[in-house]
Design a protein around this nucleic acid. Structure first.
Lengths: 200, 200, 200, 200
DNA sequence: CATGAATGAGAGTTCATTCAT
DNA sequence: GATGAATGAACTCTCATTCAT
């Protein structure tokens, strides 16, 4: 039998994954506190009691969702996909990809935000984010990019890569938020304008 | 007898306000779906049934909270408080004030975000945000500021006020989000850096 | 100071009476178990807590209503009003009056039925109906009427006044019930037809 | 495996039926407004929350009870059971059976009355009674019986079958009411006396 | 007399969880 | 593995009642 890179995909694994996906969507719609196991199970076509076979408790399901969101979510993988071209071009591609993802699949941002939101009160979540510090690695990626761009003369010399990277991250987080608190200008326009500032 | 601008503050008014405040905090902590009337009432020292004396239904309470959040929240009044000084100075003060508010009282941002988040599914919320379009007025304030700054030669000539204003708004929304998904650089640092970009 | 036959009618007495009337209507609409003191008070334009000044408890109010219904209700007084004319004419008038009352003011029948309905479970009600045996006195009135009619040759000779009176009472009770479980024929038609049977 | 006319009686069906029965009794005792789901569930030996497994809402339970009462109740089936013998004999049997049912199982009449009582305010009930017009079919049965009796010379010639049928129906409704507002004469006596009038 | 404010018991309903099958 | 059935805690809301003013 064929094996994928994800290891042995049993029927049970598929079901588990489907449930996580369904919970993912539910959290995006109704928030973490609005999550209902019945709804999740129904979405997969299962009885709600059967869900407990795969996840003994609701918390276990949430943890699985969190794990999935943080390790498979959009923010993690994006940096790896933009390794070619000039620094400016790579930054541009990176920002646009991120923005496109957010707009087309707000779910990702919503769930991540929802999880992060309860971090102060939930040690388990805090620990999870520490185990997968995607914000840090994202930042590192941007710092490197900005650094290279400065050296290549593409970005203004007085740019502080550390702070610049943080600015772009904050701005992108803002783009996620602006899904619901919309600003007048379009995302692409803003990104282009920001990039011009970057050049000097 | 002395009267404040808020008119005669009866016992009932105070109680109502206290309940709104408590609900405000509750929503900030547990989200809109995690709001519990019992908890709100207990916070004010009331039996949960007494809450229904002031707000006939939970939805009525939420509406009052939404009204309060949108009309009294931090984002609305900030522009009015920064009318003096040079455009650059006023912008600086405005951004810093906003940032300080967010850091010291994350509640405001959280509740506003929570309300905005359910806007797609809740017509009542949509109508509320239309009635008080603080994002629009906030944007208008920034556009004017940038425009004046350009004319005064304080900001770079190639700046598009419309887009620039949107960028700053998005960035500030990101600052709110970064309360839970922290970026390495400090908010003040980032703001100063952005302002430098603005100058050219 | 003027005195009515009802004794000193103070402001309090009027209020009490108004509350009883309102409760009367409420019971007719929603049944005894559906009675709400708030609704009664509101009907009279009083705060619901003020009602407790006039009736310390809900049961006290119900008792007052029961007292009123049984002692002032339509069934009690009707016999006294039909003392003139031939037996057949008096019977006719009596039945028609009763029927008209029921149709125009179903409230009376409804409340009486509602009270009687809970007699098996409520000793207080049982005692009340024993104190005012309007059914018995109503029966006595009819027996007398039938007896006179037989002697006068207006009614068939083989009529048993006791049983005949009971039949008419039962039939009239049925007319009350048919307010909600309607029979095809009109009440007047049926009454006339019954009277013909009575004649022979 | 042998099947009854009621089809496969699953555990769930039995439970549902038991709950309907319990609600039936509860309505008879406390009225429609006095119905308590907790009491119904307890009667069947269930937790009150389990009731919602079988009936999603209280209204759904009431509707099931209404359906049962109207379609299975005593008044519906009685006519079918009296098809043999002379018209007079059949009428006699019919009336006596009805009366006996009412006395031995007042529940039926009480629930039916209770449902009919709220018909003016509840469109759903009105629709139900229109769907099963047992009063009409009952009337039709009686009209036919009286008609046959007249032709057979058993009943007086001047009898109007339509009106006569209505009279008997009204009288029987009155018998139901007299369960709580008793008349002196016995039901059998009255029925016999009425029949004598019928003969002429 | 009358009201505003508060309460606690109890109502219907939801929901995560358990268990026998 | 999967389901039907059951539970109990918790939730929103209602209602009669009380008490200070």
């Amino acid at each position: 039998m064929a094996r994928t890179a994800h290891g042995p995909t049993t029927h049970a694994d598929e079901r588990r994954h489907a449930l996580i996906q369904a919970a993912y969507q539910s959290i995006a719609r109704h928030g973490l506190e609005g999550l209902r196991t019945r709804e999740v199970a129904a979405q997969v076509g299962l009885d709600h009691s059967t869900l407990h076979y795969y996840f003994p408790t609701k918390v276990a399901l949430i943890e699985a969702v969190a794990e999935y969101a943080v390790f498979q979510g959009l923010l993690v993988n994006v940096p790896r996909d933009h390794q070619e071209g000039s620094p400016a071009a790579r930054l541009h591609e990176f920002l646009l990809t991120l923005q496109r993802n957010m707009r087309e699949e707000p779910t990702h941002f919503l769930v991540l935000y929802e999880l992060a939101r309860y971090t102060p009160q939930e040690p388990a979540l805090r620990e999870l984010f520490q185990r997968q510090p995607f914000m840090t690695s994202w930042h590192r990626f941007l710092v490197l990019l900005l650094h290279e761009g400065i050296e290549a003369g593409e970005f203004r010399a007085d740019l502080d890569p550390e702070i610049g990277a943080s600015i772009f991250m904050t701005f992108m987080l803002g783009l996620g938020t602006s899904l619901f608190m919309p600003v007048p200008a379009g995302a692409e326009q803003m990104i282009e304008h920001l990039e011009r500032w970057l050049r000097g």
